[in-house]
Computed example of a mutant assay.
Amino acid sequence: MTRIDAKFADLKARGQKAFVAYVMAGDPDYDTSLEIVRGLPGAGVDVIELGLPFTDPMADGPTIQLAGQRALEGGMTLARTLQLAAAFREGDDTTPIVLMGYYNPIYSMGVDAFLAAAKDAGIDGLIIVDLPPEEDSELCLPANAAGLNFIRLATPTTDDARLPRVVENTSGFVYYVSITGITGAAEADAGDVAPEVARIQKASGLPVIVGFGINTPEKSRAIAEVADGVVVGSAIVSKIGNCDSPGDVLAFVKTLANGAHTTD
């Protein structure tokens, strides 16, 4: 059982939904980023999504693109991202960390070397947005064999014919992208999300976490009512990009987490 599996089992036992926070590793700089990441569990975050900076983030909107650019300009690399995760692990051995990004930096390091380094750093799962199920042998299957959850994205365009292939080797949870398009582009609607979540739960047997278009405590609560949890990324990254202090960022995160945790 991974930390992700243990976390969702614990949340289910307590009748609580998950709150997942995305931050870009190294944004706006390594030290500030580490301070924010270390503060996330205390702000109510159940799972940390740690963004891996990349030069061509095709699925991300301007807010996260700029965060990645700031991190890269500050010297952030895959190796330093894993270093940040390892530093977090020195004080927290229970909060799951999911590394989210693109395949190129992992390919450049080498899959075997990356998986060994990720395990050593305390990474629990991967979301690699540009590796489709047809490429599972490339990273998904080796990651699962190494004890890492490989988390797949499902979208409003993932129809019943495609869904079984998408969830076939997925573990940990399924990330449902609630809107079509890039991050930060529109708002999620609980009425549209609910039947899709039920469909994916039935097909996968896994928790379904909804992301994209969630930016307020009210929206966090509304989506958590119909899913197993919510992910907030762009709204948090925007606070960091506006030079809010780590304390202000974490206070904002806490309001979002409280929304997800106060479902009926």
Rank of each mutant, 00 (worst) to 15 (best):
A67W: 04
I179F: 06
V231T: 08
T180K: 10
V111Q: 15
S234L: 02
A227K: 00
A43S: 12
Q69D: 11
A59D: 10
R70H: 14
I64G: 14
T55A: 14
V208K: 07
P133R: 08
G181Q: 07
A143M: 08
M1D: 03
D112A: 15
T170S: 14
E134Q: 15
V111H: 11
D130H: 15
G26E: 02
I128A: 12
D192I: 11
L256H: 03
D31G: 05
G205L: 06
V37M: 13
Y102D: 06
D160V: 15
A87D: 11
K254H: 14
F88Y: 07
V208R: 05
A146L: 00
G125D: 01
A198G: 04
T55K: 08
F114Q: 13
K12I: 00
V208F: 04
V249C: 13
A194Q: 12
P164F: 13
D248G: 14
Y30H: 12
G15I: 01
E187Q: 12
A13S: 03
G101S: 09
R89F: 10
Y175E: 13
A222G: 11
L50H: 10
A143T: 09
P246Y: 10
L66R: 15
Y22R: 09
N144R: 15
V197Q: 03
I179Y: 03
V174M: 08
K219Y: 07
M100N: 14
A222M: 04
K219Q: 13
S137M: 04
G61Q: 02
A251M: 02
V37I: 05
T155A: 15
D124G: 08
A43Y: 05
V23E: 05
Y103W: 15
G75E: 01
G241I: 00
R152Y: 07
D124T: 06
Q201C: 04
A71Y: 00
S33I: 09
G61Y: 04
K119V: 05
A257H: 13
A118I: 06
G247W: 04
I64V: 15
T55P: 10
I200V: 13
I179P: 07
V23W: 02
E90M: 01
A121Q: 05
L34F: 02
Q201Y: 01
K202M: 07
R89K: 10
K202N: 14
G172P: 06
A59R: 12
I179H: 03
D120C: 01
D93Y: 00
T94E: 01
P142K: 09
N144L: 07
